[in-house]
Simulated assay, not measured.
Amino acid sequence: MAEKITFLETRLQNAEKEVLELRSLTAGRVAFSAALRDSGSGNIGPFTTATPLQYKKVFSNTGNSYNPSTGIFTAMVSGMYFFRFSMFNNLASPPNSVVSLMKNSERLTSVWDTNGSDINDMGRNAVDIPLKVGDNVFVQLEPNRLVYDDVMNYNTFSGFLLFTM
């Protein structure tokens, strides 16, 4: 009986090691990329309040941390992340587009195009930021602003885990 218990304890310890190894392999696999529209074309906005943009055309979502229904990325793993977003201004004159990358309720960076004589400007921005489990990151359309998108996928939002912490 003692030999059997020792044998089972060894097997349990080996199984626990394998589980930890598998967790470490999958923990660093977080990446997503999405575009604003999955079909159609036109302006999105304006809204009277700041509104998270919902990037509906999902190119990838490894780790399922990005939710296309809300437009919000939620960290499932604590670590250092890279995020990038692009904005194409509205096609109405005058241009009136402002979007911001948000971490929870904190504005990190923005891209804007307003009050110009041209109407076809585009901008991009990116950050590396630390996130804890449960932190949210999203692109916010600022109040009374618009963005334009169509099947060319001008407006994108992407991110990935650089390393765990």
Rank of each mutant, 00 (worst) to 15 (best):
M1S: 14
I5Q: 02
T6K: 15
R11L: 15
Q13T: 12
Q13M: 09
A15G: 10
E18N: 12
E18G: 09
E21R: 12
E21G: 06
S24C: 00
L25Q: 05
A27Y: 00
V30G: 03
A31N: 07
R37Y: 09
I44G: 11
G45N: 13
T49S: 15
L53R: 08
Q54Y: 05
Y55D: 05
K56T: 12
S60E: 14
N64M: 09
S65N: 01
Y66G: 02
Y66H: 02
P68E: 09
S69P: 02
T70K: 10
S78C: 05
Y81N: 03
F85Y: 15
S86E: 08
N90G: 14
L91S: 14
L91A: 12
S93Q: 15
P95E: 13
V98W: 04
S100C: 12
K103N: 01
K103E: 01
S105T: 06
S105W: 00
S105I: 01
W112T: 14
W112N: 15
W112H: 15
W112P: 05
T114V: 14
N115I: 07
G116Y: 06
G116M: 10
D118W: 13
A126K: 01
V127N: 01
P130S: 07
K132R: 10
V133Y: 00
G134C: 00
G134W: 00
D135V: 04
N136S: 15
V139G: 02
V139E: 03
P143R: 04
Y148F: 15
N153V: 10
T156A: 09
T156I: 06
F157L: 09
G159K: 02
F160S: 12
F160G: 13
F160K: 11
F163T: 10
M165V: 14
